[in-house]
Design a protein around this nucleic acid. Sequence first.
DNA 1: TAAAGACCTTGAGTTAACTTTATGGTTGAA
DNA 2: TTCAACCATAAAGTTAACTCAAGGTCTTTA
Lengths: 137, 137
Amino acid sequence: MTYSISDVAKKLNLTIHTIRYYDREGLIPFVERTANGTRVFKDSDIDLLNIIQCLKASGMTIKDIKTFIEWCSDGDSTLQQRYDLFLKQRSAVETQMKELKKTLDVIEHKCNYYQVAVEAGTEDIHQHKKIGNTVFE
Amino acid sequence: MTYSISDVAKKLNLTIHTIRYYDREGLIPFVERTANGTRVFKDSDIDLLNIIQCLKASGMTIKDIKTFIEWCSDGDSTLQQRYDLFLKQRSAVETQMKELKKTLDVIEHKCNYYQVAVEAGTEDIHQHKKIGNTVFE
DNA sequence: TAAAGACCTTGAGTTAACTTTATGGTTGAA
DNA sequence: TTCAACCATAAAGTTAACTCAAGGTCTTTA
């Protein structure tokens, strides 16, 4: 089973431009070409693009993802580096989740605050802090 | 209690430049000035900067945060808009947390994969997919 | 057979959020 | 009194990650 660039774009919810950009940046070095240069994607290429999406979501830059892919190409001599990389990303994502939880708590506090204020028709319902003449909490 | 811009920068782990940038963008319109133009921050200004950090962490742009601050200045007539905004941000953050959890699961899978491979000294320990001649899982 | 619609490359443009540079004013200790 | 250490503005520069435009080739379809 093979796919055109637009098939892949639809499947992964990326634009054609983005996929070509990733190719240019060296993220998908194993995509084959027809005689006239058209890219032909295999399932394994789609798997790789999925991994790239995951690494991006974990906060990695394109440049760092490229490094990882180069390590993959280098074979078993880079296993430790790749392991360390994923350990680092794991802890990075765990940190992000904790931060996001704190953020959510603050936002939920605001939701409650505004729900009460909307029902009352005024922010004066709250004992509050003022900044200038403007209510901020 | 008042603070200089560098005090605030230290306290909130921002640079002086970033704080001035936020001021230029209209995010902190209530900071006072001395006769010669030096900014003087009150505790309420620091509270507001903390709220700004939280909104940024939830994925809001500077432009949208500015809109929120304008709504605050407009008083009770914007209560519903502000409530809706926080409901929207809450659901945005909840979505982000779910996505991050999926990402973490994939990364943990990779950690296990590489731990086994490092111990074995080779990726051949895994039944695997190959892309070109390169192992990607 | 010609127009539509894929695909390609190179290179320039965009956007957000800073970040730096250039230039200059104020203040307080040595 | 000078000089370091603050503060200020305006405007240009940076970076990442796209995104678009121009100009060209190939293939399919009316």
